[in-house]
Design a protein around this nucleic acid. Structure first.
Lengths: 211, 211
DNA sequence: TAGATTGTTAATCGATTAACAATC
DNA sequence: TAGATTGTTAATCGATTAACAATC
């Protein structure tokens, strides 16, 4: 499918946004769109949109534009939304429970198979219909579910040991809310960090500049 | 304080990570560090660290390195961690409540003054010691608290009207978990988007590439 | 066909890395 | 002083924008 084998992360990080805009266009009954009109709606240049899309193939039609539904489907495939990755969630504190309940996992290519936490307040409770399991059952449950993704909503201190166990169980990707630097310690892992505190501090910086 | 008046967002987004690493070094009793050693710990180049820091001033000492505690304090000041921004949270669903309970707001320069939600399940309940207020009290409460930041944990459809009201009340910065494109609609606002679904989709993309 | 818009190459801009003189 | 390491300039690399030929 890919025209080039290496696509820069700058491009990849724009794909989900294209995907969302195209979904909205589709829902609003728009069937075709030019790079120029999409660029105006998204606040990008038309040139960038055409460059981005052409990393993956010629999805448009010269003189005409892009078919919204087809382009939406193509980007979905590129992002891997045409299958579900088995996934386990580590940590059922405030954040872990909110992620479990809030995310549209199936629409994001994820199937949540199990949730783990040792804390007595949550152990055994139901979260999104799943019983929170103790960590000692990690190996047993993962041997059956074969997760390739783990979501880490655990404290930094707990992360190193759990990451080791998950890697040994075949987990390849981490959606990492902890401050443990998985990518640096395990270069073979695929890591997407979500550092909410960092994001908030960046907002603070920008506010300060405006004064 | 700033040497240059415009600092690129590429640099700014690295600052919170420096801040975290320096905090850990400080906690571990490290008093000074060279750009080379920090670069090895963080997985950056020494050159980039020196370039980044020099956007804001000469914090190091030639032949010696950087004083950890001093550098930590300087970056904190640059990020605005030396004061608290009054902040309101909109939306006390799964995500809003988790954000309220989970974030170390005070350590991130934020004071959470009020939480708003109209849903009957949460209206009037206590979240992080604050009573969830109905949206009709937004103007009254903001007139007293003068928030400059709003955290949006509300659905996309609810966002446009609420953003208008918040801007009219003097809010300048938005920590935006919704899919409403504030920055595009209101170029004068400072916006930091947190699009968790987008982040998860980029993880999915990266996993797919590895196969 | 004429008009429109893509796909793609070339030009520009910005960010990162390398090199080294300044200096502690 | 000699050694180390910064601050800063220059070189490289990568990403974005502009331009235009291809083509629907």
């Amino acid at each position: 499918m890919a025209k080039n084998d290496h696509i820069s992360m700058s491009v990849v990080r724009r794909l989900p946004r294209y995907y969302r805009f195209l979904y909205d266009l589709k829902e609003n009954g728009v069937t075709r769109i030019s790079s120029r009109e999409l660029s105006q709606r998204m606040g990008l240049t038309a040139s960038q949109i055409r460059q981005d899309l052409n990393c993956f193939g010629g999805f448009g039609q010269q003189g005409y534009g892009y078919m919204v539904e087809q382009l939406y489907a193509e980007i979905g495939k590129i992002l891997g939304m045409d299958r579900l990755s088995e996934t386990v969630l580590l940590g059922a504190g405030n954040l872990g429970r909110a992620i479990a309940n809030h995310m549209d996992f199936e629409k994001r290519g994820i199937h949540l198979a199990a949730i783990f936490d040792d804390a007595p307040q949550v152990a055994g409770t139901l979260v999104r219909g799943l019983q929170v399991e103790p960590l000692e059952k990690l190996e047993e449950i993962c041997a059956a579910a074969h997760p390739e993704v783990a979501i880490l909503c655990i404290p930094k201190e707990a992360a190193p040991a759990i990451v080791e166990r998950l890697l040994a169980l075949g987990v390849r990707g981490f959606w990492n809310y902890s401050h443990y630097d998985i990518a640096h310690e395990h270069p073979e892992a695929v890591v997407e960090n979500v550092h909410l505190g960092d994001s908030l501090m960046t907002l603070s910086y920008q506010l300060k500049q405006e004064e």
